[in-house]
C-alpha cells in the first residue's frame, strides 16, 4: 500500500489532474502538492490517487523499469 507509482500529467484542472502511465489513465489529486508549480508533461509520484511528490522524467523511467521487472517475475 505504500508503493507509489510515477505518472505523467496530461491535463490539470484546479487540484485535480489526469495522468497517464503505460497507457493507463487516472484521475489524480494534486491537493498535497499545491506548493509545486506543475504543468502537463511533468511527472508525479502517485499513491492511492494522490500525488505525493514531483519527480524527474528519468526517475519516472527508472521506476517503471522496476515495475516491469516485478510484473514479469509475478506473471
Amino acid at each position: 500500500m505504500c508503493l507509489a507509482v510515477p505518472m505523467r500529467i496530461t491535463k490539470i484542472d484546479g487540484f485535480q489532474c489526469t495522468c497517464e502511465a503505460r497507457g493507463i489513465e487516472r484521475e489524480v489529486s494534486l491537493f498535497m502538492l499545491q506548493d509545486e508549480t506543475l504543468a502537463p508533461g511533468d511527472h508525479i509520484l502517485v499513491h492511492v490517487g494522490y500525488a505525493i511528490q514531483k519527480v524527474s522524467e528519468q526517475d519516472a523511467a527508472d521506476s517503471w523499469a522496476l515495475f516491469d521487472e516485478m510484473l514479469a517475475t509475478e506473471a
Binding site: 500500500m1 505504500c2 487540484f15 489529486s29 491537493f31 498535497m32 499513491h47 492511492v48 494522490y50 505525493i52
Partner: peptide, 16 residues
C-alpha cells in the same frame, strides 16, 4: 487502514 503514505491522502481528502 494504512501507514503514513496512505493516511496522508485520507487527511488530504478531509482537508479539501
Amino acid at each position: 487502514a494504512g501507514f503514513e503514505t496512505t493516511t496522508a491522502p485520507v487527511a488530504s481528502m478531509l482537508a479539501e
